[in-house]
Design a protein around this nucleic acid. Structure first.
Length: 266
DNA sequence: ATGGTAGCGCTGCTA
């Protein structure tokens, strides 16, 4: 099974790119972030025409997450479990069962600046995510939590640690929050397959030629339960999808992270 | 160079 995650920075602006990429790469399950769509504007038909089932969780202008699958899509669960104010969750998490795997598409808040109310909300959101992942992982099935975590797990995951002193995405608190997610029994499979840095980066600022200069960050992650991590064959970032191409408009500032899994045995 | 680019949508916010 080929599983991928891609922050598309508006699915409306990127739909043709995404559907063409699905067909070209033969991806089975794709987690999307930043669709920036309301549920009633989600283009389910465009995915249906190429053989994919979909689930979407969005309110419109900001955020919005989706799962797209050609190996089945059952039991879609938007938001966190239990009762929680929608203004905390912000249309940033969606889970569904695809091809025998509990797939979770997540878009962790950016945090904006260290110490801001948005930064504090990011830490709260991470802790609330941990609660749900602890329950999901305790059930013992195959779990894949994929998305834009807005956290660079360690200094190998930024192009220049000195450039991020005092910035979000690299603070001990954010990294500890991510560590508590992993402690639920999840493995960062890009790091598993690529034990040495830098990266592989998944995001580059639009500005100042950052992509061309290789000035990126690894903030899009695939966290797999240990059972599933044992089936990981290959993990790559599709940098081609980050490049500008003629007639297709601008790319997203994120590239897709692609995980190939061996078939389940038994 | 406290800049730069992209999306949404029409003003300035978010990333």
């Amino acid at each position: 099974m080929r599983l991928a995650t891609w922050n598309v920075n508006s699915l409306k602006a990127r739909l043709d790119r995404v559907t063409e990429w699905l067909v070209a790469t033969g991806t089975d399950v794709l987690c999307l972030q930043e669709t920036k769509l309301a549920d009633d504007a989600f283009p389910a038909e465009a995915f249906g025409e190429i053989g994919y089932a979909t689930a979407h969780h969005g309110n419109g202008r900001w955020n919005g997450v989706a799962i797209v699958s050609r190996v089945g899509l059952d039991d879609p669960r938007p938001g966190f479990t239990g009762e929680l104010a929608a203004e905390v969750e912000q249309c940033r998490i969606l889970a569904a069962r695809c091809g025998g795997v509990d797939v979770v598409s997540v878009y962790v808040p950016n945090g904006r600046s260290v110490g801001s109310e948005h930064y504090e909300a990011k830490l709260v959101w991470l802790e609330r995510l941990r609660v749900d992942l602890a329950s999901l992982c305790a059930a013992g099935g195959d779990v894949a939590v994929c998305g834009d975590f807005n956290i660079a797990p360690d200094d190998r995951d930024v192009f220049d640690p000195a450039a991020f002193v005092g910035a979000t995405h690299v603070t001990p608190e954010e990294r500890a929050g991510l560590g508590r997610l992993l402690a639920c029994g999840l493995v960062d499979v890009a790091r598993q397959v690529h034990p040495d840095g830098p990266g592989p980066f998944t995001w580059w600022d639009y500005r100042a030629g950052a992509f061309h200069k290789g000035e990126g960050m690894r903030i899009d992650l695939a966290l797999c339960s240990t059972s599933l991590a044992a089936r990981v064959r290959r993990v790559e970032v599709d940098r081609e999808a980050r490049k500008r191409s003629t007639g297709a408009g601008a790319p997203s500032d994120h590239a897709p992270l692609v995980v190939d899994l061996d078939d389940a045995t038994g």
